[in-house]
Write a protein that binds this DNA or RNA. Structure first.
Lengths: 147, 147
DNA sequence: GGCATATAGTTGTTTATGCAACCATAAAGA
DNA sequence: TCTTTATGGTTGCATAAACAACTATATGCC
């Protein structure tokens, strides 16, 4: 039996992701107000490089949930900003390993703090238990559809 | 006290909205497979016009959670596709009232059915109770941040 | 070794977003 | 009435996404 718990009036927000749009806009605004001049998409690439520096573009595709052309261009722009460097792999000449610059390392602490702050702004009035369940649902949705 | 329930490893998906990205991609794919040749952004505009035809671009901004330039261009493209028509208001000459064409009316049933189907695919393995809570959390996030 | 196939990355095109600046009209206030 | 201000909409520019087509290198198989 299909999950028919969505009435028409409630379908829209879920499908169009108004909440995550709102979070993204707020994070971008918080970056800007703190003088952090990167886009949230660029930040999402840096985020994974901070966790593990020197990974391939392909790995960035998987962890950021973006396609190859998107990563090519995000890395292009991050390179122009002198935040990352493409280093051809010696083992496999098809692969670019992406490394952070010292410039990018400096942004980690402040931007992560702003990301956490943004989430706190987003979750005012929501209990820990509710957040736990929401995370489970969103994770399941992702698993169901990522393919 | 701030909500600190997010460990670093969990922050990314929530902030970047991987779940709603996945839903959007799947809906677009389902549209395409059924021969429906519109973008989900265009669909989101039609969605609100199906609920109430003949509203202003400003009203579309509010209901779709998009800014004015975005709506200008979505309406531009929908007009090119002969899905909507701009009709200048007689009462207030600044306002365009947006009306659906018969062409667009024909898409309503099929596309809404595909949207519901997409949500069902997304929510496999999720209980009604969990979905209720997830909706509440996302709604609260939206309220907190929409500004 | 040589050919088919898979993988990593790039490029082109169309569509959409975010922001700032702008134009036209309406409303408010002196 | 005249000026200021607010509102509705458009345009320009930079960034990003989706998709298809492409290049280069690697791998598998005969």
């Amino acid at each position: 039996m299909p999950n028919n718990q969505f009435k028409k009036s409630e379908l829209y927000s879920f499908i169009t992701g108004k909440a995550s749009t709102a979070i993204a806009r707020r994070l971008q605004k918080n970056f800007k107000q703190s003088g952090l001049d990167i886009t949230i998409e660029q930040w999402s690439v840096l985020y994974h490089l901070w966790k593990e520096d020197g990974i391939s573009q392909q790995q960035l595709c998987e962890s950021t949930f973006r396609d190859k052309p998107s990563i090519t261009r995000l890395v292009d722009n991050l390179e122009k900003l002198k935040m990352v460097k493409r280093v051809p792999s010696k083992d496999d000449r098809r692969i670019n390993m992406i490394y952070l610059t010292p410039e990018a390392l400096k942004l980690q602490e402040q931007s992560m703090q702003l990301a956490n702050q943004t989430l706190n702004e987003a979750l005012v009035g929501v209990t820990n238990g509710q957040v736990e369940i929401a995370k489970e649902v969103l994770q399941q949705v992702y698993e169901n559809l990522k393919k």
